[in-house]
Amino acid sequence: MSAHQQGTGSAYFIDTKKQEIETHTLAVIAENQPGVLARIIGLFAGRGYNIDSLTVSETEHEKHVSRFTIVTTGTAAVITQIKAQLDRMVPVHSVADLTAEGNFLARELALVKVNGLGDKRIEALRLGDAFRARVVDASVESFVFELTGKPDKIDQFISLMMPLGLVEVSRTGVAAISRGIEVLKD
């Protein structure tokens, strides 16, 4: 590869503008020990990587492992670095780039509170229905919708609800898994 195509990460003449920014969803299996989450977040903060979304939970209690789903953005070279940096952490078992591997499902859950009366309230309910959101709480002046789906579906729902009295949103962040029989090893 010629020198003109190279170059990330050094103090010398980095031209990040030339390279396209990609969004990748990573699945990380790690020991469920204290400090692992802090180590991972510290890596992103310390090295200046982006976190768009991060979710973590113990997935198999007996094995003491947790699964992190991290949505991150960067140039291809930065994404490769992020994977290598995660993978070399002592408590990390494996790192999978679901985006690079192709076919995967990404889902998020949101709780959306909409306050209002009259027509707006009716319209909110109608839209909730169209998005297959469930009403999990209601008062005379408010609804809380529960919605699951791809992050962009939730984004869209939120922007539609905005003029209808949206006052509060809580989102879980993305959980992701590959389609088909492929299994992430740990």
Partner: peptide, 30 residues
């Protein structure tokens, strides 16, 4: 490396390293 865009401009590179994160970190290798 000094200036990266003028670093060994006409070379093919082999890189032996035990740490995968050292590979392609600042300089792309073949």
């Amino acid at each position: 490396t000094g200036r990266l865009d003028a670093f060994a401009p006409n070379s093919k590179k082999i890189h032996i390293d035990i740490d995968p994160s050292s590979i392609n970190k600042t300089v792309k290798v073949d």
